[in-house]
Design a binder for these strands. Structure first.
Length: 607
RNA sequence: GCUCCCGUAGCUCAAUGGAUAGAGCAACUGCCUUCUAAGCAGUAGGUUGUGGGUUCGAGCCCCGCCGGGAGCGCCA
């Protein structure tokens, strides 16, 4: 936001170094970590260290020499337009802005840009973010929720940072797990269909648990049980075979039950405010992936061991000429000719590159699949796709329960829908106590915004690589470092503006905006936070880390709450100061809203 | 055996190689006649697992060790 001044100072420093034959060093700018005034700083330790290394050492210790240089630079620079003063302290050069100019500039820019404040310049690259890849015929649990929440926040950040962004979902709609559900449905539940999108989807998950129990070897089986189980398994395999050869009846059953799951998935995505651009399905890349295997064999990337009764494999390390094992070997085609996950991912990547012209491809997938994705990327490279370099696996730690890992086949899962419902119930209970003034018809909506916000924030305020042990009381906490705390800051800002009758800039634009008075530390702190939003967007998008934005918006809300408590805006006597403060409140409200939006969290007007 | 991730306050987690390692929860003190107390102000809590190394400077980078987790040819 203040790059112009920074560049000017930087060029003066470079001039100084050149004139004094000081070895150049990269200038790294930091905010000054003290409150009360704003500015940016850089240090001269590197310059001093380089000088000492070059043997020009007057044998002065580096920190002392850095301070000398800082002082010399300071006197060399003199005065700069818009800069209040400059100081040299313990090896750092601190450049301070003129308080009033700075405050005016920040608030003015926020209000002018509005919802676009912080948006990055349009980039030429197209980025695809693939997330929300649950299996059909199961139900959407809290682990899927982490994936989807993370993927959506990332997509929003990358898009806002200026990249052409494509959101892609990739449900797993085939395989033995899917067939297992179809088998038990056909055998014991044919014709049944619970009412309600979620109920129906969850019912399929229950069937899966039941089927698994019937098909799994039990301890101390008596011969009859063994025979029964094996007979069931034969039926299931037969169904798989029929599905594979396109049997009309089995396909119809598959389409119907698959649609039940997809309907539930679409509903869940709607709940999370996710709008997918592209839907890929495993079933659609299954056939094409077989042709790819042939191509890879012909190119001598894959090795066909079928004549020896084996599978089609890729010896990745060998083909890449690596001597140490890294990517190892993996299978592309089972010995019976059917495809695997890896095979389909190759086919999918080809579609992404060739049909969607994706320059960069981000896979939001559980960290446990890291090796598989690295293998896929390596094979894409061998295959000749240069975009393989820009395939990135955004892994995240898995979500488990206090009693251990979730298991769809055992039915030991926490369903997203159940957590979402519980979230709303809990907020409604708090509202009943604290927010009697919210109209009845708005209550439910606000409760949803807050409850879902709490859940989303709890998922995003932990770094990607960290595992989460899901505790509903922690996830749905409304105190402290949570979405409701941030939303509450937004609501308080909104409340001030409503009472002031200055709800948008136009209605309050009768007076010029000026911060030409003694700002309190709370105001300074708040404005400082506002000014950092654009670079936070950039950092979070570049590092693929929604956490950076989640941490930022908490800090911003925290600064607002402190300001709110210490400075009574509406009771400010001086009209000019009151106006400036109202504009600051408006700016804070705007930036909180922008930041929450990037996380996929809504900002309620009241709570 | 090989690869990857983690180890920071009692607990859950932060901290682009830079100035004084920060939050929340839990505990304790204050603050609602004042723009929403889902809040604010404060107290207490640290040998950043450990031993070396690189660097002017290391929680962060490199190597070893200890402890925890994950993955490794026909699951996804």
């Amino acid at each position: 936001m203040f790059t112009k001044e920074q560049q000017l100072i930087a060029s003066k420093i470079h001039e100084f170094c050149a004139a004094n034959e000081l070895p150049p060093a990269e200038l790294k700018w930091h905010p000054i970590p003290f409150s009360g005034e704003w500015g940016f700083s850089t240090s001269f330790f590197q310059v001093a260290a380089n000088e000492a290394r070059a043997g020009k050492g007057n044998k002065i210790p580096v920190p002392k020499r850095a301070q000398e240089i800082a002082e010399q630079v300071k006197s060399q620079i003199g005065s700069v337009e818009g800069i209040g003063h400059i100081e040299a302290v313990s090896g750092y050069l601190n450049v301070y802005f003129k308080t009033s100019d700075y405050a005016t500039r920040v608030v003015d820019e926020v209000l002018n840009a509005g919802a676009d404040f912080g948006r990055g310049a349009q980039k030429s690259e197209t980025v695809m973010v693939e997330y929300a890849q649950p299996n059909t015929h199961h139900s959407f649990h809290i682990g899927h929720a982490r994936n989807t929440i993370l993927g959506e926040a990332l997509a929003r950040l990358v898009q806002f940072a200026g990249y052409e962004t494509i959101r892609a979902s990739y449900p797993g709609d085939l395989g033995l797990g899917v067939i297992t559900v179809m088998w038990i449905y056909e055998k014991f539940y044919k014709g049944q269909e619970p009412a309600g999108v979620h109920e129906r989807g969850q019912w399929l998950a229950k069937l899966y648990v039941e089927a698994t129990a019937l098909l799994e070897k039990q301890e101390n089986e008596i011969p009859e049980q063994t025979a029964q189980r094996e007979a069931y398994d034969v039926e299931r395999r037969e169904m798989y075979r029929k599905w594979d050869e396109g049997d009309a009846e089995v396909r119809e059953l598959w389409r119907t039950t698959r649609e039940w799951s997809l309907e539930e998935l679409r509903e869940v995505l709607h709940m999370l405010d996710v709008k997918m651009d592209v839907w890929f399905y495993e079933s659609e890349v299954d056939e094409p992936s077989k042709a790819i295997v042939d191509e890879l064999i012909a190119k001598d990337i894959a090795t066909d061991e079928r004549p020896q009764g084996g599978a089609v494999i890729v010896k990745i390390d060998e083909k890449l000429g690596l001597t140490k094992e890294k990517y190892r070997t993996n299978v592309l085609l089972r010995s019976d000719g059917t495809t695997l996950y890896l095979t389909k991912d190759l086919a999918l990547a080809k579609v992404k590159f060739e049909q969607y012209h994706v320059d960069r491809s981000i896979y939001v997938v559980d960290v446990r699949q890291s090796l598989h994705l690295q293998q896929a990327f390596a094979i894409l490279k061998l295959w000749g796709f240069k975009q393989a370099e820009k395939c990135y696996h955004l892994g995240y730690g898995f979500v488990s329960l206090p009693e251990g890992a979730m298991s769809a086949r055992r039915g030991r899962v926490v369903l997203f829908k159940d957590v979402a419902d519980e979230a709303v119930r809990r907020v409604l209970a708090v509202e009943a106590e604290k927010s009697a003034d919210i109209p009845a018809d708005e209550r439910e909506k606000v409760a949803y915004q807050i409850g879902m916000g709490a859940l989303i924030y709890s998922m995003l305020s932990v770094d990607n690589n960290k595992d989460i042990v899901f505790d509903i009381n922690e996830a749905l906490s409304f105190d402290g470092r949570t979405a409701p705390y941030i939303q509450n800051a937004y609501v308080r800002a909104n409340s001030i503006l409503k009472k002031s009758k200055v709800e948008n800039r136009k209605s309050g634009d009768l007076q010029p905006l000026t911060f030409d008075y003694d700002l309190t530390n709370h105001e300074i702190e708040l404005i400082e936070k506002l000014s950092r939003f654009p670079q936070t967007v950039e950092q979070a998008a570049n590092e693929y880390r929604p956490l950076v934005m989640a941490a930022y918006v908490y800090d911003l809300a925290n600064a607002f709450h402190s300001f709110y408590h210490a400075v009574n805006v509406l009771q400010t006597e001086d009209e000019k100061i009151k106006h400036a403060r109202l504009m600051l409140v408006m700016a804070a409200k705007q930036v909180i809203e922008n930041a929450l939006r990037l996380l996929g969290i809504q900002a309620p007007e009241v709570m």
